[in-house]
Design a protein around this nucleic acid. Sequence first.
DNA 1: CATGAATGAGTATTCATTCAT
DNA 2: AATGAATGAATACTCATTCAT
Lengths: 212, 212, 212, 212
Amino acid sequence: MGLEDYRRSVSETKRAAILKAARQNFLIGGYSKAAMAEIARDADVSTATLYKHFSSKETLFRAVIEEAYGGIDERPIADVGGASAHEVLCGICRIYLRQQFEDQMNGLLRMVIGEVPTSPQLAQEVFARGVTVRYGQFRKVLDALVARGDLAPHDTETSVRQLGGIVKEFIVWPALFTKDYRIPDDIEETIDGCVSAYLTIHGRPAAARIAK
Amino acid sequence: MGLEDYRRSVSETKRAAILKAARQNFLIGGYSKAAMAEIARDADVSTATLYKHFSSKETLFRAVIEEAYGGIDERPIADVGGASAHEVLCGICRIYLRQQFEDQMNGLLRMVIGEVPTSPQLAQEVFARGVTVRYGQFRKVLDALVARGDLAPHDTETSVRQLGGIVKEFIVWPALFTKDYRIPDDIEETIDGCVSAYLTIHGRPAAARIAK
Amino acid sequence: MGLEDYRRSVSETKRAAILKAARQNFLIGGYSKAAMAEIARDADVSTATLYKHFSSKETLFRAVIEEAYGGIDERPIADVGGASAHEVLCGICRIYLRQQFEDQMNGLLRMVIGEVPTSPQLAQEVFARGVTVRYGQFRKVLDALVARGDLAPHDTETSVRQLGGIVKEFIVWPALFTKDYRIPDDIEETIDGCVSAYLTIHGRPAAARIAK
Amino acid sequence: MGLEDYRRSVSETKRAAILKAARQNFLIGGYSKAAMAEIARDADVSTATLYKHFSSKETLFRAVIEEAYGGIDERPIADVGGASAHEVLCGICRIYLRQQFEDQMNGLLRMVIGEVPTSPQLAQEVFARGVTVRYGQFRKVLDALVARGDLAPHDTETSVRQLGGIVKEFIVWPALFTKDYRIPDDIEETIDGCVSAYLTIHGRPAAARIAK
DNA sequence: CATGAATGAGTATTCATTCAT
DNA sequence: AATGAATGAATACTCATTCAT
């Protein structure tokens, strides 16, 4: 039994090493330019072992993406707590951006988009994960704010996307087109502007309180 | 002179055929999977002729993208005319979407994004063209509406992106992840929703509430 | 261990087969006309295997040359023994010529010369090997003859080249320009003439007249 | 008639331009790497014109070589005059070397050697020109010196090659293997050494000892 | 069970030569 | 007579995947 466990743990260690090496290699030059042989070498396994774990390059790519996106929705979301609506919304925007920018997530996203003709289903899954799952979490916050009376009652399924769209426009979209994008220093002000715009639309009658 | 003209016309015909074939091939399986030999065959020229026109695959790709994006800003923009702000804004949204969806523009955009690691500069140019040039045109409309008193005075450079972001979120973003995206039937309602949200923020009577 | 040994032996067998096929192919039409694919085919390996062993055509060419020239200086050199100076010198000339004419060495030399613009360093190495190493061995013989009193004391570094130059002029130089050069039947007389001329310069009783 | 002359002169001008451009291009990277298209461009003619003048690359190469070697034997040779045998011989060595080193003759020679498998006949011709023609001229000088009593009577056909061989060994052979060979500063001393060795063999008082 | 050598189909690119104008 | 665009065969090199040990 112990032997089996040992083997499993070795196997999982290798699997993790492969995934890590693959992610790095994919990120450097995109899906096509990454070479299985080099991934294997970087992961300190033979190509045969690599293929034992992932039966094809596409499978490996998918695993890399799934691993990256799998973690996203398990993150704790900011509690509404006693903070103002503005503060809470800025908080969820920050969470969103943190997830989007850490670990080269943007680079992975670029690849998923680039590989749409080849792996359309994967792209759909990533999209669904992003919109359905992530936005779903954020909706809970919006709903809580509505319940608390900080937001006017409205269709939060739509409104979460309005907020998301504005944030993406200013922050994610540029990152998608820029190789080594760095989050700009005035990010807080940008977030603030996005949230203010959102509150102008959906904020309680409380129009007067808007904007810094 | 006659000879030269003849040659030029033949040359331009071939160049156009190559660009067309290249665009199609690129769109099918992405940049990497497209083969120069097949592009040449589809364009009814030899590979050598192809290379006389475009000295490398990357050059050809760039030419395809530039041709696609070159036309965009020369399109006439909707006149403000006597229409209401809401109508005018829906109009520019429609223009934006028409440009984005015709001729498989979304597919090209996907490739540009996918090739960011390889051709970062091209991506920057496309981004600049999209944001600077296109939004620049739309801003003129917003400024006209402000001048006319239909919109509250505000920073239109920012607000055009707010509108753009919301529209992208609902329409462009899904298309980016979907192989053969078809504009949904309820597109008009979606546009209407986006514009309404925008007007809530920047519409006239709301002048007092404008952020920064 | 057994596996590794097996693999090494297979690998070395293939490497040798590749080198042999490469040498033949290079000799047929020169460096440029030799095709990697055909070399691979002749060696009964795939092109990929060829490239695993030699990372480029140039590398392969260099390996062929180095293999050919590597053996040269490990050959035993004629012992001075009790033979006359004339006999000894004829002996080393014969060794020199045997090395130069066996295994199509002249053909390889032609290629090295032809590839000087492309591989200048390789040419330098071959030249150094020829002059420094080979002549170095022959010098030992001359020095022995000087010590024995059969040659007048003199600068053997220069004189070995005088002998070599004369021999080359009559035998190597024509071979360099002739596709399938065959050593002529009167080679012995030619060698004899060269050695006689050399001895006229450096032979014993003539000691007083040495130049410089 | 004048028109015809004009045409001929234009044609010859172009031919000369082509030959010049070809020589340069051949010298840069060797026969194979030179491209007909670039030669044509450098010569300011169309490829078709180039092919009107020289029906193939090989023909062009041959023409370049022939032009280069054609001039050699028409050069005036040093007169024996009243100079000493040593001076005269140094003089013809200098002539030989001047011919060999000017206009990148060594580079052309390298190519001829490298192309022996492809153009064996050309190599033969160049060899014959070098040995027969050039040495023939130099023999006249040797014969004159013999007649004058400065050299012992002997077979000058052989002895001219002995001198030539020694000179080649020290000066031409290294140049053959060195990309941008520069004649060393101590060339005069080297020549002097070669001539002295030659005179030791064939100089007057030594007449008795000449080998066969 | 792990290895890494081997594969063969595929890629972008080049070039001597021809031909319609 | 001159052009230069067009050709198509050829070339070095790569890579995802398999298989004998």
